[in-house]
């Protein structure tokens, strides 16, 4: 069961709190709940608001007082966050497209076909969901350096495609297992081959599951830190979080510029989250619940 459905069910049934009988206990409970609700929300937002406020405040007294949106332009150009964001966008594009396509195909096979070794292969993919980046990044760096892949987009992207494919295979298999068998049979009787069944029948109706996968992979890739840190030692290719971390290490002054950079780095995922939040919450909670 997902948090979203649970929540919807709750919202649909606005019944009383604990049946303590008289409404006074219930009213106190309600008041306390509001205090906790607001207090907790403020605590969660506090650090975020601090950064946004700092990003908008003038660096020096000479810059005047009041809001200073100019900081974002400065961070984009002088702070080179424009370059970092472009690198991140490119890496995210490669990882999302590759991981989604590969996961749809493998999930389709695991979810709808019988074949020898299916169980073993599937557990092999499940294993990858748990393997921490830390352990693979060390040999990856030395082996990809030998192949000349460090300091390239591929060196940053391919290890993340592999990680996302492990989760994506698990996620898409779960979706394909729930699809209607008769739909597949009907398409087959019409003469559709396995590719037609997948791309013309199952993928269009599986858009919600695929959207969730795309969003999660985008978020993980955009926010990833260790892989770009290790795989691009020359510093020519910096993703947004990496650029932010190094910017912070480099300048002790320039807190407004740093804060503006931080807001820029967070913005793409936060905007997508605010628009499509049910996908995020559902995906992150359900994705964690193994069978």
């Amino acid at each position: 069961m997902s948090a979203a459905t649970a929540a919807r069910r709750r919202d649909a049934a606005p019944e009383a709190g604990p049946a303590r009988g008289p409404s006074r206990g219930s009213a106190a409970h309600r008041a306390l709940s509001y205090v906790v609700l607001v207090g907790f929300a403020l605590l969660a937002l506090g650090p975020v608001v601090t950064v946004v406020a700092e990003a908008l405040s003038p660096e020096r007294a000479a810059d005047g007082t009041g809001l200073r949106p100019q900081n974002f332009a400065d961070a984009w150009v002088q702070g080179r966050f424009g370059d970092y964001m472009a690198t991140s966008a490119l890496v995210a594009l490669v990882v999302v497209v590759a991981a989604t396509l590969l996961s749809i195909m493998s999930g389709y096979a695991f979810g709808t076909m019988e074949f020898r070794g299916r169980e073993v292969l599937f557990y092999l993919f499940l294993l990858g969901i748990m393997v921490p980046t830390e352990v693979v990044v060390v040999p990856l760096f030395f082996d990809l350096r030998t192949l000349g892949l460090t300091d390239t987009v591929w060196g940053i992207a391919l290890p993340q495609v592999a990680q996302s494919v492990a989760f994506g295979t698990y996620w898409m298999r779960a979706y394909f297992r729930t699809t209607n068998r008769s739909l597949i049979e009907a398409a087959r009787l019409d003469g559709a081959g396995p590719h037609r069944v997948l791309w013309s029948v199952l993928v269009p109706i599986g858009r919600p599951a695929i959207t969730t996968l795309v969003l999660l992979v985008f978020m993980w890739t955009w926010n990833e830190f260790l892989i770009p840190l290790v795989m691009a030692p020359a510093g020519r290719l910096r993703t947004a979080p990496l650029g932010l971390a190094l910017f912070q290490g480099q300048y002790t002054q320039g807190t407004s510029l740093l804060a503006a950079g931080a807001v820029l780095v967070a913005l793409p995922v936060v905007v997508v989250y605010l628009v499509l939040q049910r996908h995020f919450i559902r995906g992150m909670l359900e994705g964690a619940v193994r069978e």
Binding site: D11, S33, L37, N223, F225, L244, V265, A266, L274
Partner: peptide, 29 residues
């Protein structure tokens, strides 16, 4: 969960927010 309060969906959106922001950004904050 048992309180009859409004605004739970908004609350969920807000308290879940740190999950989607890059850890580097949170660390800077």
């Amino acid at each position: 969960v048992r309180a009859r309060v409004r605004g739970l969906p908004l609350f969920r959106t807000v308290v879940f927010l740190p999950q989607v922001i890059a850890m580097v950004v949170l660390a800077v904050a």
